[in-house]
């Protein structure tokens, strides 16, 4: 475990906790895309299939349970909780995320590290995670005025994968035969998708003005 990866995991954990905190305290999910949350739940469910078969470390297992639990509870809140679901603007959150799932599945069947169920599911979860933020970014463009917590949530989510890229570079140079093209390319695409959001986020932060994304 190197510093970059630990920082990445903590940033990712913090992004999820910021979101859960927002939903739980103000009982609102305004500005949050349910589609992205559902995609993340699928990402974790398909990536952590080895939760009970491969024990790597206590840290690894605990973090998997936390990610699974938090993403499922966010989806539950946004779908079932009587107060929270009222603040979900479904007519704005219209990204057809089903169109993301099938191509990722087909790609995983074609490009994987080994043609086994677990490895195909693992590759699928990486491809899906790379594009899972799209519904949320589209929703931000639509709703324009982004409240602080949502902006912080998306920023932290983008930052976590950036730390992971540093982790992969570090591991490439320090570990023999550490090569995972699938992970690296997916992670790079994922981070690039946040590019313009980061640009506007830093601008709003620098000029100390409300974060506005161009229409």
């Amino acid at each position: 475990m190197n510093m970059f990866r630990f920082l990445g995991d903590m940033t990712h954990l913090f992004s999820v906790l910021v979101l859960l905190l927002k939903i739980h305290t103000i009982k609102s999910c305004a500005g949050i895309s349910l589609k992205t949350q559902e995609l993340y739940a699928i990402v974790f469910a398909t990536r952590y299939l080895d939760l009970f078969t491969d024990y790597i470390s206590l840290y690894n297992t605990v973090m998997k349970l936390v990610y699974l639990g938090s993403s499922l509870s966010i989806v539950w809140y946004m779908r079932r909780h009587k107060l929270v679901r009222r603040s979900y603007d479904k007519d704005q959150d219209t990204f057809r995320h089903h169109f993301l799932i099938l191509p990722c599945l087909i790609l995983a069947l074609l490009i994987n590290e080994k043609f086994t169920f677990m490895e195909v599911m693992w590759a699928f979860s990486l491809y899906l995670e790379a594009v899972a933020i799209l519904p949320q970014l589209v929703l931000l463009q639509r709703t324009r005025n982004i409240d602080n917590l949502t902006g912080q949530y998306v920023f932290l989510l983008g930052a976590y994968r950036s730390f992971y890229i540093l982790n992969w570079i570090y591991r490439y140079f320090t570990e023999v035969h550490y090569v995972h093209w699938i992970t690296w390319i997916s992670g790079l695409v994922q981070t690039l998708l946040y590019g313009d959001f980061f640009y506007y986020y830093f601008h709003s932060w620098k000029n100390n003005e409300k974060l506005q994304l161009p229409a």
Binding site: R5, H12, N60, M63, K64, Y67, K114, N167, H177
Partner: peptide, 10 residues
């Protein structure tokens, strides 16, 4: 050959 050992990253 990329090792397909268990994936140790989250």
């Amino acid at each position: 050959e990329e090792e397909t050992a268990s994936h140790d990253e989250l």
